[in-house]
Amino acid sequence: MTSPLVIDARNISKSYGKGSSTFHALKDVTLQVAPGESVAIVGKSGSGKSTLMHIIALLDTPDSGSLSFNGRDALALPPKKASELRNKEFGFVFQQFFLTPETSVMDNVTLPLKIAGVSPRARRERALAVLRQFELEDKAASNANDLSGGQKQRVVISRALINEPTVIFADEPTGNLDSATGAIVEDTLFQLNRDRGITLVIVTHDEDLAARCDRQVFIRDGVVVPSGAGVAAA
């Protein structure tokens, strides 16, 4: 491979619990993602797909294995550096939106920049620019709760984009949306992947969504399996 991998996870294992009740969420999983690639991690619920995403997004630590981000050993990073990395390089899109209630769209979208310590003025400008792309500019002052499902997920994508990330991790991004709005959100994500070269890692059990990605990684019972046969949700 000519360009270094964005994510290079090798022989990742993770288990929960002790003794006879030990649950092996991941067993010796290897996953490599090249820059600008879109990868779908597909599996049933409980297959370990979310755990894998959490580990490669540095939200969780594996019991064994190695993980590097842009060629740097991500597991060796001190907590402060790991936090910085998540703040600067990653964008997150979650199924349940995770918008802060009773708070304006503007405040929700600017949260990553606020955490990064960007000045209020620069935060506002960036947020308005991002919201403009999604035709949500007029909603900036609205309460995040008052938006429709599709609008909420676009706010979430705006939030994920505001720090101009290298990778967007999307965990069932269309899971809570009807198919029409879900399609719009999918289009948005793939457009970002295409136009800006943002690497996409999508965790899903939706085969249609997975099929739109460059590559699919199927997981069953914590192990990567060769094909999707009987892996995706029936």
């Binding site: 402060k80 936090s83 998540r86 997150f92 349940q96 802060t100 990064a116």
Partner: peptide, 18 residues
Amino acid sequence: ERTREIGLMKAMGMRAGK
């Protein structure tokens, strides 16, 4: 009540101290 909000802030790189 704000468990998820806290989780989100942490995911976005907010340190425990903050």
